[in-house]
Simulated scan of single mutants.
Amino acid sequence: MKNKNRGFTLAELLIMVAIVGVLLAISIPIFNKNLESSRESVDLSNVRSAYSEVMAAVVSEDDEHAVKVVPLKQKIEKWQSKDPVTIAGITHSNNEGDTANWIGYPVAGGECEVSYQAGVGVILNWKGSTVKPEAPYPFNVNCDLQKPLLDSKILERPELIRHFNFEIDSRCNTGSQLVAAIMTEVKKDPDNLMNYGTWAYLGKGGTKQKEEKRYLFWTSVDTNAVGAGKEIPVIISTGDGRYYVSETTTATRRSGSNSYVAIADHLTPDGYVACTENGTKYQDLKEAYDAYTKLVTTGAYQDYKDTLPKK
């Protein structure tokens, strides 16, 4: 007796998958084109409505409403579904330059300013994106703040392995082989944040130690310049990829016959944890730096706003 419930063979399934893939490849561009066409239709309708409002204001001598700005919804510059386009009796094509009544062309995230000028008539001024560009950063926001420490190999040095707790502060830069070794690695990447301000690696030595027990404290502040006993904002990066914005209190240290101002007073492992718990956690370095910037420009540490890194 034959089995009437026989399933598909592998070859049949592969053919079906191939057919579905072809259909998707054909349908997705069509869908996107129709979606953009719909956005353009909405934009045209909104601009025409704005034109009607402007002309009504002109007739009633209402100068306050004689200019209208229409935010655009379309995602692709110029017209994709209609060319040429006619608005308020003005016909314009994509390849046509500016005229007295038509300036520019629509762009993604842009706007159209509709106004009226005596002797010229209605003016459609298509302007660039209304979305503000992301503020540039003076460093690579994806830089790895733990990399200089690891690449320097100093964690494998006996003196760090023996120490229950280590502190390597960038201001201890007179005769410190540890700081020199790390700075050699930092300077290999000119876009690393550690090229600016003051930094300190804190934690346990040895490559076998857990990464979450190693910390980098960074501040834009020159600690030697502000002196000891000052509260300063810091970004904290942990070896396992966590980021915080917190604060510390600067302190005087001695290295041989020289003294310097460290980024923080002597901290124990519990002190590191306390700094993170008293701060705010962020997803990545970019978010942490944005929060830090806000803190020194409009927050509690505006005295340090001029210390932010600059290219």
Results as ranks from 00 to 15, higher is better:
Asn192Arg: 04
Asn192Asp: 12
Asn192His: 10
Asn192Cys: 10
Leu193Gly: 05
Met194His: 08
Met194Arg: 06
Met194Glu: 09
Met194Trp: 08
Asn195Asp: 00
Asn195Ile: 01
Asn195His: 09
Asn195Cys: 04
Asn195Leu: 01
Tyr196Lys: 03
Tyr196Met: 05
Tyr196Val: 02
Gly197Leu: 07
Thr198Gln: 02
Trp199Gln: 04
Trp199Phe: 13
Trp199Ser: 01
Ala200Met: 11
Tyr201Gln: 07
Tyr201Arg: 05
Leu202Tyr: 11
Leu202Met: 12
Gly203Val: 03
Lys204Leu: 06
Lys204Arg: 11
Gly205Asp: 06
Gly205Trp: 03
Thr207Gln: 00
Thr207Gly: 08
Thr207Asn: 09
Thr207Ile: 14
Lys208Glu: 15
Gln209Pro: 15
Gln209Asp: 14
Lys210Arg: 15
Lys210Tyr: 12
Lys210Gly: 11
Lys210Thr: 13
Lys210Ile: 12
Glu211His: 13
Glu211Asn: 14
Lys213His: 12
Arg214Asn: 05
Arg214Ala: 03
Arg214Thr: 03
Arg214Ser: 01
Tyr215Pro: 06
Leu216Thr: 01
Leu216Arg: 04
Trp218Cys: 02
Trp218Asn: 01
Trp218Val: 04
Trp218Gly: 00
Thr219His: 08
Thr219Trp: 03
Thr219Met: 05
Thr219Cys: 08
Thr219Ala: 11
Ser220Glu: 05
Val221His: 04
Val221Tyr: 04
Asp222Trp: 09
Asp222Phe: 09
Thr223Ala: 00
Ala225His: 14
Ala225Phe: 14
Val226Cys: 05
Val226Gly: 06
Val226Arg: 06
Val226Tyr: 04
Gly227Phe: 10
Ala228Pro: 09
Ala228Ile: 11
Gly229Tyr: 10
Gly229Arg: 11
Lys230Leu: 10
Glu231Asp: 13
Glu231His: 15
Ile232Val: 12
Ile232Lys: 07
Pro233Val: 01
Pro233Gln: 03
Pro233Phe: 01
Ile235Glu: 00
Ile235Cys: 00
Ile235Asn: 00
Ile235Met: 10
Ile236Arg: 02
Ser237Phe: 09
Thr238Asp: 00
Thr238Asn: 02
Asp240Ser: 13
Asp240His: 14
Gly241Lys: 05
Gly241His: 07
Gly241Leu: 00
Arg242Pro: 06
Tyr244Gly: 01
Ser246Thr: 09
Ser246Tyr: 04
Glu247Gln: 15
Thr248Leu: 07
Thr248Lys: 08
Thr248Ser: 08
Ala251Tyr: 15
Thr252Leu: 13
Thr252Gly: 09
Thr252Asp: 11
Arg253Gly: 10
Arg253Trp: 12
Ser255Gln: 14
Gly256Met: 08
Gly256Leu: 07
Ser257Ala: 14
Asn258Gln: 15
Asn258Tyr: 15
Asn258Glu: 15
Ser259Met: 11
Ser259Leu: 08
Tyr260Gln: 06
Tyr260Ala: 06
Tyr260Gly: 03
Val261Phe: 01
Val261Gly: 01
Val261Leu: 04
Ala262Gly: 11
Ala262Leu: 07
Ile263Arg: 02
Ile263Glu: 02
Ile263Pro: 02
Ile263Tyr: 05
Asp265Pro: 08
His266Pro: 00
Leu267Tyr: 07
Thr268His: 12
